[in-house]
Amino acid sequence: MIPEEIVRSPSWYESSARNRITGLLDAETFREILGPAERVMSPHLELFDLPPAFDDGVIVGRGQLDGKPVAIIAQEGQFMGGTFAEVSGAKIVGLLRAVTASAGTPDGVSAVLLLLDTGGVRLQEANAGELAVSETVRALLGVRAAGIPVVALVGGRAGAFGGGGIVTACCSHVVISEQGRISVTGPEVIETNKGAEEFDSRDRALVWRITGGRSRVLLGGADSYVKGDVASFRAAAARSRNAAPPFTLETMAAEQDRLEKRLSSYGDCRDTPEIWARAGLADPASVPDIDDDAFLALLSEREIKHDAR
């Protein structure tokens, strides 16, 4: 009765951070660090008369994916927009530093899975949040420099905005679904500052054409495009940890080249269908509307893989 294309298995977009972890890792392997019962919570939300969360919206720990140990970090986008703050950020940074320190030891992991679902910095803790992003960037690159891939998974309600967009692009590999969004300044903020003529945030098709999963993967801003179910994210995470670029001067020089070319090729475009037309896509206007299977087929035809991240 129900069309096959309608995902009936748990949807990444709808799942909580905890349920995403459960679906992503091998059964019964997740070990949470500083779990809810430890009550490591934001000391600042009280000042704003806001209820805290037992985990401050970030769940960290380790487990196994296809039998190999991984470290995992998941932001809960429904709590305070999944924001980077003093405690939530410190949990991320602490885990990343521990991964680097354990590289090559029996406690080492094969990869870090970073489940982003964030509006960026928590403004009630703006300075701590901003620093947490900066410390995350540095700790994450430390992990990569130690030879351990960091895989970003983006497909939650909050997307990966603000500092979250920057952190995403620092990862070795970015997995995204149609609903996933990556950006720095959110459409609402651009509209507030520059007017609806610059960016009409209520035009959601436009928002997705600019920031959404399909646009990002076509432009090279994400590496793996998956259907929106948790199982597809799991499969992509397992695949991509073996094919991640190292964090080296060569990779950065290649990224410099890749990003320079993007600017010179598409810098004068106003909307993504212009980019796609210029890139030689047969029917650029249809890209947002075709189904996932058709889009995946289009991607595999074009082979836009790059190692420059």
Partner: peptide, 21 residues
């Protein structure tokens, strides 16, 4: 960061991340 639709479309997050990296 510059707040324009065009910059976000081009993946400003990647440019900022690239610089930080």
């Amino acid at each position: 960061q510059r707040m324009t639709r065009r910059d976000e479309m081009l993946g400003l997050n990647e440019y900022l991340a690239h610089l930080a990296k």
